[in-house]
Structures are given as C-alpha cells and as structure tokens.
Design a binder for these strands. Structure first.
Lengths: 214, 214
DNA sequence: CCAAAAACGAAGGGAGCCCTGCGGTTAAGC
DNA sequence: GCTTAACCGCAGGGCTCCCTTCGTTTTTGG
C-alpha cells in the first residue's frame, strides 16, 4: 500500500488514475464529493479506490500534499526575492489564486489534517517561510508592522468565504477582496489599532475545525 | 397556515415554539441542522413542525426575516447618523458581529431565497440604505471613493469564511479581519487601483449559490 | 507457464436525514 | 357539550453516501 515501491505495475497505474480523478473531482466539487464519482472518473471500480485509500482523508492527503508543497515552494522563493514588500503581496495574491482555481485547495489550505506528516511538513515549511518573509518586509518598512502570519491565514479563510459564494457567478470577485486586504497591509496606509491576532493554538484548532465533515 | 391570523390558539403557540427552537438550533448549528432536533427542542412532534413549515426554506425564512429587518433598521439608522464615516464603520462592525453571534445569520446574510417576499423586502431596504450611507460618507470625504455596497457584501462573505473556521477556537478573530477591511476603506489610507466590483446580477447569483444545500 | 496479486462487478448493510401517513387523543371555540 | 381542528406517537419509505464483502477474471512477474 506504500505509494513508493512494492506496488505492481497496474496497481501503481490505477493509484495514479485515482489520484488524478480525485484532483479533478475534488477541484470542481469540493472535498466532500462522493467517492463513487471519483472512481467513475478514474474508470476504476469503487473497491479498487478503497483498496488504495481506505479512508477519505488518505485520498485528500494524496491530492493536497502536492499543492501544499507548491505553496511552500512559493513561500520560500518569496523569502529570497529582492523586494520583500512586493514579494509578500505577490505571494498572497498567488495563494489566493490557487484557492480560486481549485475547490480542493480552497477547502484544504484552511483545513488541518492531524497525524498526517506528509501534509504537516510542507505546512510548517510554508508557515516558517511566511514568517521570515513578513519579518523581512517589515524590516524594510514595506509592510505594516503589526501584520503576522496568522493574518495571512485569516486572509485565506476570508477568501474561501468569498469564493464559496462567488466562484460560479463572479469569478473575479476574490481579486477585489484581496486587493483591499493588501491595501490594509500597506505601511503607508491608514492603520488603526488592530484587535489581537489569534494565537497559533487557536489557529490550529480553527484549521482542524475547518476539516471536511466538521 | 398564515402566520398572522386564522390560527387556533394552541397552533399559534406551537408555531412560535418551533420558530424559537429553530432560531436557537440554526443559530448554534447552522441552517442545515436536522429538523428533528428543532422539533425536539420545541417539545413538539416532528409532524407538527412539518404542518407549519412544509419546506425547510419556509422555516429558515421565518427565522431570518426578523434578523434581516434588524439589519435594515440598522442601515436606515446609520443613514440618518450625524457622522457618516463613523456610521459606516459602525454598521459594518455591527452586521459582522451579528454574523459572529449566530450561525444562521452567518449563512443567511450572504444567501438568497428567491420568491420570498418577506425576505426580499428588508434586503432591498437594507441595500438601498447602505448605498445611501456610502454615498453620504464619500461625499463628506470620510470613505474611500471606489467602495460600493457590493464591497460590503464581499465583506460579509469574507467574514463568513473566517467565522466558519474560527468561531469555536478563536471567537474574536473576525474582529481583526473587519478592522483590516475597514482600514482599507479609509479615505486617507493607501489606496491601490481595485479590481472591478461584481455586478448586482453576479452578486444576486452569488447569494443564490450560497443558499444551504448549494 | 503458473502462482500470486490485483482489479472487477455486484450486491448489501448501515447511517443520517428527509418527508408522509395513519389511528388515536387533546383541546379550542362556538 | 359537541364539532372539528390541531397535536401526538410512531412507523416507514426514500434518498444519498458510506464502506465492506465475495466470487470471478485479468494481469503481472519470476
């Protein structure tokens, strides 16, 4: 059952078909889409799907790890970029664009799957890089000083809410929200005293609570 | 079956119990909570519930019309307030607080129930007052000039997204989002060129799409 | 070539929620 | 008081999706 080796050629092939189908179905209809549809799309029997992924979560995990690694790579590139302020804004925009393009990402980036090392690793990598990026941008006076990584998580949750409503009918609406949020992060902008940011424990619990099936 | 008259005394009473129970249950667990729980909470048989509200939507409607009228009243008060800029910010904050206090409101304010005159009336009343409020605040230079009523709808959708994730674990997180959004609306703030706001048709479709049960 | 592994098709049990129907009981209202 | 509306309890059919099982057939890899 390992994803690496020890799998027969056709088994490995079918596993790939299932993951690809899940990527498509979850992307279009969300992480709660019926697994029968995934199996049908993969042209594979439902029993085969369950043989490879006994739990829905394991399939979600297989779909999302790639995306989360993309995200982490994006964050690490941003840290190394010459203009940290622009890199921060560009990063936020890109991640939100990933959410807009894929329902699985929308629901997955703000959700948390405990006991899943394959997802925790890129997640902490991304959060670490994000913190560094924010620190750099703030040191150079290009980012409002009271913004933290947790705020970016709030942005993703907010964007998820807008996308939930507007994805079909107003596919560009999220851009407007993100532009406003980034304006609020501008160091030269009007800045009121902000209410406290959630603690990392609170944020972790929030992400757990956002997991599909509540 | 009219809510006004022609109902026997005990029938009227039971109807009230059901609505009160639905307000509580939907408020705690969302608009998709099992109707059996509503009936149990009302200490009423499930059949009685269905006799009064043959469709789930009709019960939701009964619960939400009050809240929507509150919202519309709030908006109309804000229009008459002396300081339109402060009134605008206060209005947004209050509406978002209503969302934070009640899951039914969270889901209902960004959803749309077609063919429901009891809800369309306060909704259009609120939107009309909101537009007037925004115009006044902008005329007095207290609100960024490119903000529209549709942006406030986006705020509500965004807030709904944050609340979905953080309601239990970080109950104050929404305040931070709203503060940032309001900073972005400040006329003295940094203001980039914004992507286009969704049209009112798009927004209507978005709200229809947000209706429970997709 | 052949044993083992995997996939197949189909069926079925279970859970949760929807909504309806029926016979019997309570209580309102004239 | 008597008619009748409304309520009650409860059973049950339907839907969707979950996940499992079983006997059979295909494919692989040595």
């Amino acid at each position: 059952m390992r994803s690496g080796k020890g799998l027969r050629r056709d088994a490995e092939l079918n596993r790939g078909r299932v993951v690809a189908a899940a990527r498509a179905v979850f992307g279009e209809r969300g992480l709660e889409a019926p697994l029968e549809d995934v199996a049908r799309r993969a042209e594979v029997n439902i029993a085969t799907l369950y043989r490879h992924f006994p739990k829905r979560e394991s399939l979600i995990e297989a779909v999302l790890t790639d995306r989360l690694n993309e995200l982490a790579d994006l964050a690490e590139q941003a840290v190394r970029a010459p203009d940290p302020g622009a890199a921060f804004r560009d990063f936020v925009e890109r991640v939100c664009a990933m959410q807009a393009a894929d329902r699985a990402v929308t629901e997955g980036f703000t959700a948390c799957f405990p006991n899943s090392p394959g997802m925790e690793e890129p997640r902490t990598r991304a959060l670490g890089a994000l913190d560094a990026l924010i620190r750099r941008a703030q040191q150079e006076g290009q980012l409002r000083s009271d913004v933290t990584g947790a705020d970016v998580m709030l942005f993703l949750m907010a964007n998820a809410g807008v996308l939930r409503s507007t994805r079909q009918s107003a596919p560009g609406a999220w851009r407007r929200l993100v532009a406003l949020l980034l304006d609020a992060c501008h160091p030269e902008g009007f800045a009121s005293a902000l209410p406290p940011v959630p603690t990392s424990e609170e944020l972790h619990d929030a992400m757990v609570a956002t997991r599909p099936g509540r």
